[in-house]
Amino acid sequence: MHAPKVRKAIIPAAGLGTRFLPATKALAKEMLPIVDTPTIQYIVEEAIASGIEDIVIVDGKSKRSIEDHFDSNPELENNLKEKGKDKMLELVQQTTDINLYFIRQSHPQGLGDAVLTAKSFIGNEPFVVLLGDDLTQDEEPLTKQLIDRYNQTGESTLAVMRVPHDQVSEYGVIDPAAKVSEDGLYRVKNFVEKPKPEDAPSDLAIIGRYLLTPEIFEELENTAPGKGNEVQLTDAIDSLNNRQHVYAHEFKGSRYDIGSKIGFLETNIEFGLKHPQTKDDLKAYIKDLAQRLD
Rank of each mutant, 00 (worst) to 15 (best):
R7G: 05
A9E: 00
P12G: 09
A13K: 04
A14F: 12
A14E: 05
A14M: 05
G15N: 10
G17F: 11
P22R: 03
A23G: 10
A23K: 12
K25V: 10
K25D: 13
L27F: 08
A28T: 05
E30M: 05
T37Y: 02
Q41G: 05
V44G: 05
E46I: 13
I48Y: 09
A49V: 06
A49H: 06
S50T: 07
I52D: 02
E53T: 08
I57T: 03
R64W: 11
S65P: 07
F70D: 14
D71S: 15
P74M: 14
E75P: 06
N78F: 09
L80E: 01
K81E: 15
E82V: 10
K83C: 12
K83E: 09
G84W: 05
D86T: 11
M88G: 13
L91N: 12
T96G: 06
T96E: 10
T96W: 14
I98C: 04
L100T: 08
Q105Y: 06
S106V: 05
Q109T: 09
G110I: 00
G110C: 04
G110K: 01
L111P: 02
G112V: 04
L116G: 02
T117D: 05
A118M: 03
I122S: 00
N124H: 02
N124E: 00
P126N: 02
F127K: 01
V129Y: 07
D134H: 04
L135T: 02
L135K: 06
Q137C: 13
D138C: 07
E139V: 14
L142Q: 11
T143E: 08
Q145N: 07
Q145E: 10
Q145I: 02
L146R: 03
L146T: 08
L146K: 01
I147F: 00
T153L: 01
S156W: 14
T157F: 13
M161T: 08
V163L: 04
H165F: 12
H165Q: 13
D166T: 12
S169A: 11
Y171R: 03
D175N: 11
A178G: 09
V180M: 09
V180Y: 08
S181K: 11
R187G: 00
V188H: 01
V188I: 11
K189A: 08
K189C: 07
K189V: 12
K189D: 10
E193T: 14
P195C: 01
P195M: 02
D199V: 06
S202V: 04
I206D: 03
I207N: 04
I207K: 00
L211R: 05
L212Q: 06
L212I: 04
L212C: 11
P214L: 00
P214R: 00
E215H: 09
E215I: 05
E218S: 07
E221V: 01
P225Y: 03
G226A: 08
K227Y: 12
K227D: 11
L233M: 08
T234R: 14
D235K: 14
D238L: 11
S239P: 00
N241D: 09
R243F: 09
Y247H: 05
K252P: 04
R255A: 13
D257N: 08
I258P: 02
G259R: 07
K261V: 15
I262C: 14
I262P: 06
L265I: 12
L265N: 08
E270I: 06
E270V: 03
F271N: 04
T278S: 14
K279L: 14
D280F: 09
Y285H: 12
L289Y: 12
L289K: 13
R292F: 12
L293W: 14
D294N: 12
